[in-house]
Simulated scan of single mutants.
Amino acid sequence: MDDTSATITIISRFRAVPASSSILVSPGTVVEPDTPVARVETLLGKLWRVNVARDLRIPPQTAPTRLAVRPGESVSAGDPVAVGGAFFNRLVSRSPVDGVLALVSKNRGIVYVREKVETGSSDGPVEVPVADMLGVPPLAMMVYKAEGAAVGLVAVRGQVLARRGKTMVTAPVYGRITNLSTVKGTITLKPLFRTQTISAYMKGVVTRIDPAEGVEVSGRATVIRCIWGLGGESHGPIRVLSGDLTEESQLEEGSVVVANGTATYEALLHASESGVKGVILGWLRSGVAMRFAGGMKNMGVTGDEPVPFPVILTEGFLPQPMRDGVLRTLTASQGLMCSLNGSTHIRAGVVRPEILIYPD
């Protein structure tokens, strides 16, 4: 793979965001790799069908010309998604839920709204004091508990967990019910998702914003494309080792470690304990990679593994040191900030892991 050039070029990366996100930057904003560019506050759930042609009494093929919102834009329950009719006989087709206009069927005159699911915000288990909120003894909670409030089931934010007369107790987060305590009169939920931010990933300037699609960031960097990787995105200053990464290697917290050779499983654990942000190796045995990733089954599609940092291989799984050009570029970049992404898709729509090195 021809990635040995140390040429600094202008590059752009598009940070795609769900339609339910809030953009946090503007064109011209200077960003670092960890600068938040968007905040995801909701998930997208059930798809609702809205028969625009029927509501407006028009031929299905003309429905796209009557839309009041564009695909990808947000709507609230009751908002118009399409309008028609004469001035004194205005016809409106409305959204049944809070959501995002997802699809438009030109042949059937139907639009589809993807419902928004509020997640709530919590980093850990949430214990809901159901009995106290209902004013009953802890054991009596089970009498008023809703049918859908059972251990193992998922509750969306706002779902009723228990009801006594006009008093209702609802789920404060979108999560899985993990415990019903008749001793304390509580229901515990483990959040499945939480409010999260999407970072710029690279150092540069925001050059384009599409509220429905995402944010483009552009900047100057040297790009090295590699053979295989795992884990998602990270960044940090480059620290080059001589030889292999071992359990005795002196590692700097927050750095991206480069080793010309390979590493053992124990060496990768040592890197994790040392707090490094990424590891770039010449090669790594596939068995070690699979073990570090927790027993992954598909090595052809990576990026979401539960690993503490990305691991990127410049050559692959067979014993082979880094090519001279790649090693020279990384060695000459000692101390410089870099971004890295271990995501790899071997099959259709090939995606290779990359390293972006920024000039001082």
Score class of each variant (00 low, 15 high):
residue 209 I to R: 01
residue 147 E to H: 01
residue 338 C to I: 11
residue 240 V to Y: 06
residue 308 P to A: 09
residue 146 A to H: 05
residue 266 E to P: 08
residue 7 T to A: 14
residue 341 N to D: 14
residue 230 L to S: 10
residue 65 T to I: 10
residue 238 I to Q: 07
residue 32 E to Q: 15
residue 217 V to N: 07
residue 114 R to Y: 03
residue 21 S to P: 15
residue 145 K to S: 10
residue 121 S to F: 12
residue 18 P to F: 10
residue 254 G to H: 09
residue 57 R to M: 14
residue 193 F to R: 11
residue 78 G to R: 06
residue 328 R to Q: 14
residue 216 E to C: 11
residue 145 K to G: 07
residue 332 A to C: 06
residue 258 V to T: 05
residue 158 G to P: 04
residue 40 V to C: 00
residue 103 L to K: 01
residue 259 A to P: 07
residue 77 A to T: 15
residue 230 L to H: 09
residue 238 I to W: 10
residue 73 E to G: 00
residue 107 N to R: 14
residue 185 G to N: 00
residue 283 W to S: 07
residue 86 A to W: 03
residue 290 M to S: 12
residue 222 T to P: 13
residue 192 L to C: 02
residue 39 R to D: 14
residue 136 V to I: 09
residue 330 L to W: 09
residue 39 R to W: 07
residue 346 I to P: 06
residue 123 D to A: 10
residue 8 I to G: 05
residue 78 G to V: 09
residue 68 A to L: 11
residue 115 E to P: 05
residue 299 M to Y: 08
residue 2 D to G: 12
residue 43 L to I: 07
residue 281 L to G: 06
residue 58 I to V: 13
residue 277 K to I: 01
residue 131 A to E: 04
residue 111 V to H: 04
residue 138 P to E: 08
residue 140 A to G: 05
residue 246 T to L: 13
residue 145 K to W: 03
residue 116 K to W: 03
residue 90 R to P: 01
residue 124 G to K: 03
residue 255 S to M: 10
residue 333 S to P: 13
residue 252 E to S: 15
residue 176 R to P: 03
residue 256 V to P: 06
residue 223 V to M: 12
residue 232 G to A: 14
residue 265 Y to Q: 12
residue 260 N to K: 15
residue 177 I to C: 02
residue 236 G to S: 11
residue 175 G to A: 00
residue 183 V to Y: 01
residue 36 P to G: 05
residue 200 A to N: 12
residue 252 E to K: 07
residue 5 S to A: 10
residue 96 P to D: 14
residue 222 T to N: 15
residue 181 S to F: 02
residue 184 K to Y: 02
residue 52 V to A: 04
residue 141 M to N: 03
residue 31 V to T: 12
residue 17 V to S: 09
residue 263 A to H: 05
residue 344 T to H: 02
residue 209 I to Y: 11
residue 93 S to G: 09
residue 69 V to F: 07
residue 327 L to V: 03
residue 17 V to A: 06
residue 281 L to Y: 03
residue 30 V to E: 12
residue 340 L to K: 06
residue 255 S to K: 11
residue 18 P to I: 11
residue 233 E to M: 07
residue 120 G to P: 05
residue 105 S to Y: 12
residue 162 A to S: 02
residue 88 F to S: 10
residue 38 A to M: 05
residue 359 P to E: 09
residue 52 V to C: 04
residue 214 G to F: 14
residue 150 A to C: 02
residue 70 R to S: 15
residue 197 T to L: 00
residue 169 V to Q: 04
residue 146 A to P: 08
residue 172 P to G: 00
residue 353 P to Y: 11
residue 223 V to Q: 15
residue 35 T to K: 05
residue 177 I to S: 01
residue 336 L to Y: 11
residue 104 V to L: 08
residue 209 I to H: 13
residue 28 G to R: 07
residue 359 P to G: 06
residue 22 S to G: 11
residue 39 R to P: 02
residue 237 P to G: 15
residue 290 M to V: 15
residue 224 I to T: 07
residue 170 T to S: 13
residue 224 I to C: 05
residue 121 S to A: 09
residue 289 A to V: 13
residue 87 F to G: 00
residue 350 V to P: 13
residue 132 D to R: 03
residue 244 D to Y: 03
residue 90 R to M: 01
residue 231 G to A: 04
